[in-house]
């Protein structure tokens, strides 16, 4: 008893978990919600959505979110703004271009992903500088 405890920290663990979750998403394993974005169906895991988005947190945290397995986002983001955010949630990489940044910004605002909103503003700002 009282032996000194040693911790082995696997520093890649969080990115390896996320990479496996993305593989599960791509193969439709344990995905529990279909998002209808601009009419396009996107499968995802509620747990990942709720962890990454304040909007989904407010929807799925309550009992009301339990039975929801198809969610349309009327008046919500268009697919070309939403899809890069879903990929970001599962990869930590956000693809931006001058053409897509406004749509991604609008979608991130809608999804209450404030840190991504700020990054989009920085990107748009920088793309205007000479």
């Amino acid at each position: 008893e009282g032996a000194l405890g040693y911790v082995r920290e696997f520093t890649r663990h969080s990115s390896d978990v996320l990479s496996n979750l993305n593989e599960l998403r791509l193969r439709g394993i344990l995905t529990d919600v279909t998002l209808l974005v601009g009419g396009q169906p996107l499968r995802a895991h509620k747990a990942v959505l709720i962890a990454c988005s304040g909007f989904f947190y407010s929807i799925f945290r309550g009992r009301a979110g339990v039975g929801v397995d198809v969610l349309s986002l009327p008046g919500g983001p268009e697919a070309r703004g939403f899809a890069p955010l879903l990929d970001f949630m599962y990869t930590s990489r956000l693809r931006l271009s001058p053409a897509t940044a406004p749509a991604v910004l609008a979608a991130a605002t809608y999804l209450q992903m404030d840190h991504v909103v700020q990054a989009c503003h920085r990107f748009i700002q920088a793309s205007y500088e000479p």
């Binding site: 962890a51 990454c52 949630m89 930590s92 840190h115 990054a119």
Partner: peptide, 22 residues
Amino acid sequence: HEGVVATVKEAGRSIHEIPREE
């Protein structure tokens, strides 16, 4: 990746923090 011009590293927080149970 096709067509990626540059990758910029963002060191700050990326997503919201789920409040700890009060």
